[in-house]
Simulated scan of single mutants.
Amino acid sequence: MASPFVFEREVPRRDGSAGLRLAQRSGGGTGCVVWDAALVLARFLDKSAAHRQAPPGRRLRLPLLRKAVLELGAGAGLVGLMAATLGANVTVTDLEEVQDLLKMNIEKNQHLVTGSIQAKVLKWGEELTGFLPTPDYILMADCIYYEESLEPLIKTLRDLSGPQTHIICCYEERTIGKNPEVEQRFFELIQKDFELEKVPLEKHDEEYRSEDIHIFIIQKKKMNPPS
């Protein structure tokens, strides 16, 4: 059987410096292309870093420099790579069948990385090994799609995150088929253990934004001390 065709997409950065170049694969499954939610989240991270010197009240504080960052369902790796160019120490994760594409894209963009980046296999819901210390940030773009994956995903978020971990979740709202029910179920489940804050659309990148693509910042609920 012939290998899926590999084609490339360039994603520009806000400062006008060299953009990220992502190899994609046609016919390789959902994890082998750059989805719109990944573009929105990557440029949101870039914007947040670009505004770190803005006056208080006019910026969203997401300092990535020297922070431990883990991406779930990384696919082609755009979001994690963007974080690594902003100085974060990143682990991008996905299933075994996506690892060669992830590693290819890490190699293609290594010259832009100012932090560090590595790829690891992670299947949601399974016991975690080799993922310590607890990350400062967990990134996830378009990970809300299959009903059967919701509970394993949320278990993995519970296992990976500590009280100071910020989960940045970006997803595209879809109205066909079971998508609305799946999205509703995700938010029902995650609010049992986590608090959610929606990022207003005006905080997204000015060019890479859409009313159908949402960003939430999620943290574990604080436990009340025993009386």
Rank of each mutant, 00 (worst) to 15 (best):
M1C: 07
V6L: 07
V6E: 15
V6C: 13
E10K: 08
V11C: 15
R14T: 10
D15R: 04
S17N: 14
S17H: 11
A18H: 09
A18E: 15
R25A: 11
G28A: 15
G28R: 04
G28D: 13
G29I: 08
G31N: 14
V33A: 10
V33S: 15
V34L: 13
V34R: 12
V34E: 11
A42W: 04
R43W: 00
R43S: 12
F44D: 01
L45A: 01
D46K: 05
D46V: 01
K47N: 05
S48D: 02
S48T: 13
S48Y: 05
A49N: 10
A50S: 12
G57M: 02
R61T: 07
L62T: 09
L64Y: 09
L65I: 06
L65C: 04
K67F: 03
K67S: 12
K67N: 01
V69E: 05
L70W: 08
E71L: 06
A74F: 00
M82I: 00
A83P: 07
A84Q: 07
L86V: 09
A88L: 04
V90D: 05
T91V: 11
T93S: 05
D94R: 02
L95F: 02
E97M: 04
E97V: 12
V98M: 13
D100Y: 09
N105F: 06
N105V: 07
N105Q: 05
E107W: 01
Q110A: 12
Q110W: 04
H111C: 03
L112R: 02
T114Q: 03
I117K: 04
A119N: 09
V121P: 03
W124G: 10
G125K: 07
F131Y: 08
L132A: 08
L132Q: 15
I138Q: 07
L139T: 10
M140Y: 03
A141H: 02
A141I: 04
D142E: 11
C143A: 13
Y146L: 12
E148Y: 11
L153H: 02
K155L: 14
T156L: 09
R158T: 14
R158G: 07
P163V: 07
Q164A: 14
H166E: 15
I167C: 06
I167Y: 10
I167T: 13
I168D: 06
C169V: 12
E173G: 01
T175I: 01
G177V: 00
P180C: 03
E181H: 00
E181G: 10
Q184V: 06
F186G: 02
E188L: 11
L189N: 01
L189P: 04
L189D: 03
K192T: 15
K192Y: 09
E195M: 15
E195T: 15
K198P: 10
E207R: 13
Y208W: 15
Y208L: 08
S210W: 05
H214E: 12
K221Y: 06
K222L: 11
P226Y: 02
P226L: 06
S227R: 12
